[in-house]
Design a protein around this nucleic acid. Sequence first.
RNA 1: UCCUGAGUAGCUCAACGGUAGAGCAUUCGGCUGUUAACCGAAGGGUUGUAGGUUCGAAUCCUACCUCAGGAGCCA
Length: 435
Amino acid sequence: MAKRICIREAAQYVDQTVSIPGWLYNLRKSGKIVFPILRDGTGLIQCVALKSSLPEDVFESLKHLTQESSLIVTGRIRAEARAASGYELDVEAVEILQKVSEEDPYPITPKEHGVEFLMDHRHLWLRSQRQNAIIRVRHEIITAVRNYFDSHGFTLVDTPIFTPAACEGTTTLFEVNYFDDEKAYLSQSGQLYSEATAMAFGKVYCFGPTFRAEKSKTRRHLTEFWMVEPEMAFADLEEVKRVAEEMVVYIVGRVLENRKEELKVLERDTSKLEAVTGGFPRLSYDDAIKNLQEHGSEIQWGSDLGGGDETILTQQFAQPIMVDRFPTAIKAFYMQPDPERPEVAMGVDVLAPEGYGEIIGGGQRIHDPELLLRRIDEHGLPREAFNWYIDLRKYGTVPHGGFGMGIERCVAWICGLEHVRETIAFPRMLYRLRP
RNA sequence: UCCUGAGUAGCUCAACGGUAGAGCAUUCGGCUGUUAACCGAAGGGUUGUAGGUUCGAAUCCUACCUCAGGAGCCA
């Protein structure tokens, strides 16, 4: 019985006979020789089967094998300069677990396909090289995020998905029935709860899915996406910016170090990522407006940056940029106004380069109880819904802040993708709930 | 919700008022080094749906459906 290995380990078993379980990725044949390409989720390896060195029935069954059939190939690993991976396997025996029927062949053929077709077959599309690479990079990014916070004194404290009311009162929430006629809403941010846990643990982060029922239909939007939200007691805006930058630099470094192969599959220009080394350009909102107007944007002071504006700004810099001090009027009620200029708030957005736009939003929160009550009233929000939140300002209030990073936008940027829909295994979008 | 564009073979597309075609996939045949292999053959279609204009509609018009991109909103 030959040792069972995975394709990634092939280099360690040169000139040894091993068994590799997997799926048939593609098959080329030429009379008395066939080249089955095996896929096992860790990589691809081309196998070589000669008619002259195999029993007739084994050779024939291999010759007529269909795409994505499951099988276990046993044979000898050989270093091969002509092979893309550097190694090949000379077939000695084959066990076919299931041959995919010719009447109903695997739908995703080696030629190009349209978006709708691929999304309808997302459960199969994930088997492709490219999708595999994206999900592996996503995994690396998530590992890096957790590792960063875990090694910098943060405690993971996850926040609820069912919430009784809107966090910020602005974005559209998904409503669900919660027993006896009560309504609950799916969380659109864990931040308010993280403010509570930060007062209990000092530095915390939550990491989970968030839900937004906005009818946004662009390459940057999902209705269900994953967000990591650190929150720090005794932190001001400058500290929030410092942590956000350090985290982004760390994530990019980790991906460059550990996911070279995947970035190659994605044909990502890694020089763009290697430029992300820290010292992110910082602009005030005022500067950003001036800059945009000089570059032909119609934007006026007081409005939020549009997608086109973000592109104009970020294309001028090699690194992500940090824009802070947005008009208080367009920001959430809990955002700390600048004491010297109350018309702007101590919030910051991090915009990724190459036109990828906002990946992080955050800032310093209001810690003064009187000011918080005033802002709740100004936003027309019911005080009683925020009683527990107001408590945080009654019992030992301290300056604090944090940010949220959308994982999918970060993955799209680092992978260099056109659309966030490929950054999560089963994307949920406006008009896309299946599979 | 609004704006723009697209729906033709299982898939990707061509034909743009006059008998609906190619590549891939599938089947059969050929090839001992193929790299989205190649060569030959076969099967595969109420042209998104419903109306309308016309001698004649995949093609022109209307409505609806589906999808894509963008806007607003946002991470």
